[in-house]
Amino acid sequence: MFECRLPKAEVLKKTMDALKDLIKEAVWDVSAQGLSLQSMDSSHVSLVQVTLRTEGFDTFRCDKNIALGVNMDTMQKLMKCASNDDNITLKSEDNGDLLSLIFESPNGEKTSEYEMKLMDLDIEQLGIPDQEYSCTIKMPSGEFQRICRDLSNIGESVNITVVKGGVDFSAKGDIGNAKIHVTESSNVDNEKDAVTVEVNEPVNLTFALRYLNFFTKATPLSGQVSLSISPDVPLVVAYEIEDLGHVKYFLAPKIEN
C-alpha cells in the first residue's frame, strides 16, 4: 500500500507542468524516501530527475517499494482538475494497476476522486555521477527563462561563458547575433533576486535552446534556478521545491565534431 498526502495540490500541478513537454511517459518510483522520477527525453539529449522527499508530505506511507508507470499527459490533465489550494492524496495498492488521486477543498466541502490507469513501463535508468562543477550560477528563475526565450529569437543554440563575476549568454543566427551579460549581484536584500557566480575555472559551452526552453517550464516551482557547468559534460539546471525536493534537468552539450 502506498498513500501520501500534500497540503496543496499546486506544487504537484507545477511539477507536472515542468515535465510533460519533455517526457511522454515516466515511472514514479515510490520508496520510504519519497517519490522520485528519472527519464530521458525521446531524443536522449536531456534527462530529468525529480525528488519529492517524504519529510515534505503531510503523511507518507509506503509498505513496499513500487513503480508507478504513468502517461504524463494523462496525469497532468487529472492534476489540472485539482484547485491549487486543494489538498491532494495519492494512493495505490502494491500490485494495483490504478493510481487514485483525491482532491479535497480547504473547507472540506468537496472531495473529488480520480483513478488513473497505470502502465507497465520499462524505462532505462541512468547513473548520474556525483561531481564537482567548474562553475555554478544561481539567478532568478524568471530571468533565466527570459534569456532563453529571447535568445531563441536569434538562434538555436546558446553559448554560455562563465568568468569570475559574471556570465555571458550569446546566440548567433541568420538574422544576427545577441549577447546578454549577467553580472554577479554586489548587494542583494532579497535572496530571490540575487545572481551568484561561483567559478573554479572559467568555462565556455554550447547548448540547444529548444531544451532549455522546455526546462524553464519549471520556473513557477522556484524563484531561483542554479546552473552547474563543467567542460564537456552535461549542464545541470536545478529548481529547488521548497521543503519538498527538486527538479533537475541535465542537458548534453553541443561539441565540435
Binding site: 530521458m40 536522449h44 539529449v45 536531456s46 534527462l47 532505462e124 535508468q125 541512468l126 547513473g127 548520474i128 555521477p129 543554440s157 554550447t206 540547444a208 559534460v233 552535461p234 541535465f250 542537458l251 548534453a252 552539450p253 553541443k254 561539441i255 565540435e256 565534431n257
Partner: peptide, 14 residues
C-alpha cells in the same frame, strides 16, 4: 560546426 551529443554518452545505465 558543433554537434549535439547524447546524454547516454555521459551517463551509463545503472
Amino acid at each position: 560546426s558543433k554537434q549535439q551529443t547524447s546524454i547516454s554518452s555521459f551517463f551509463k545505465p545503472k
